[in-house]
Design a protein around this nucleic acid. Structure first.
Lengths: 193, 193
DNA sequence: TCCTCCATGTAAAAGGTTACATGATTTG
DNA sequence: CAAATCATGTAACCTTTTACATGGAGGA
């Protein structure tokens, strides 16, 4: 259980922005860019109870007694939760992260606002761009090797191979993200002055 | 259990390319662009047995008796497996797929070679580009609305907001993929003549 | 009154992760 | 012969998915 599920961190990040209920969070997952998380009650409510049990969030229950019917419960971040969130946000970007947990890295970036100083965000983008550029370059090399291999196997013919083309799509996506990261980093540095 | 796990489909697609063992497949997951799948034996061997139980693959076991120690088992696709694979590949690209299962769509594309006629691949790319362009445009609109909202909240100041910037990264990635799909589609159509 | 939305809950099943384990074969 | 690699297996744990369920509040 090395890294906490990103669902829990997404919940923590959202609650940090504004105290809200499980229902509110479900709506966010259903309607925003976070829609790749399930908005099913079977994932969100248990996850909320897990992180509440760890002391990262607290709820102001509207219940008057345990027998009281289900009422809206607003969760807010505790100090411990804030510390956990910051620790998650403020980590170096490793090559391993880039290869295996790219969406988690973007999630971290998205939640930095208001939780870590701008300098940390700028540092993150620098590391992000560097690691991603390395990965993209390495992938380009592999891609060329694959292409040459295929060309050798079918000489005289233009090598068209959907596996290779899909790989290319991925590499182009990485290159776009490198540009994005460098541009945004420059923007943030300028803004900080 | 509406959609089979993509791990099973990835296994099916790889075995379709060439009969191979679980160990070979693990190496592929560990070293290629498919590395976001786990190469752990705890996921792959059970998955292989599941799809074997469904009759989609067969193994030529090297065992002489059940007591024989573990030996390499090469799996190959059955006719039923081939049919399942083709049915998975040859589906329309829905807006829902685009929003929730983008990586699965790319996986499908990557495995089309040798399994479906080129015309199906071209058709897929057309639908893929159309749906993705729609999604990207819709996201751009939402992005502008968010930006205006933030600008209104902090007047006079350039709105810098990591959530918004992360969203922008996603949109730029989509736009890159749209270009890729259109370019590759044209390439395939030209090649077909 | 009926329908929709608000708001949460639970249980079963399936799948993946992690960790550990076994033994053969190849290589230095 | 020791170490690395080949090759598969299993068990505990955790999370997610799916499906079903409860009950209040507000509007047509």
């Amino acid at each position: 259980m090395r890294s906490r599920s990103t669902l829990e961190m997404a919940l923590l990040g959202l609650v940090a922005q504004k105290p809200q209920s499980g229902y509110d969070l479900r709506k966010t997952f259903a309607t925003t860019a976070l829609r790749h998380y399930s908005d099913s009650p079977g994932s969100i409510y248990p996850a909320l109870r897990r992180i509440e049990a760890r002391g990262w969030i607290e709820s102001t229950t509207g219940k008057t007694s345990p027998a009281d019917p289900r009422r809206r419960q607003d969760y807010r971040l505790t100090d411990a939760g804030k510390k956990t969130l910051i620790a998650w946000l403020d980590q170096p970007v490793s090559a391993e992260d880039m290869r295996m947990r790219q969406t988690e890295l973007m999630l971290r970036f998205a939640f930095m606002d208001g939780n870590v100083p701008r300098s940390i965000t700028i540092q993150f983008l620098g590391q992000f761009a560097r690691e991603l550029a390395l990965y993209a370059a390495e992938s380009r090399t592999k891609w060329q090797q694959m292409r040459d291999l295929i060309a050798k196997a079918m000489p005289g013919r233009v090598p068209i191979h959907t596996g290779l083309l899909a790989f290319e799509a991925g590499i182009e996506g990485m290159e776009t993200q490198v540009s994005w990261a460098r541009r945004v980093r420059a923007q943030l540095m300028e803004d900080a002055q």
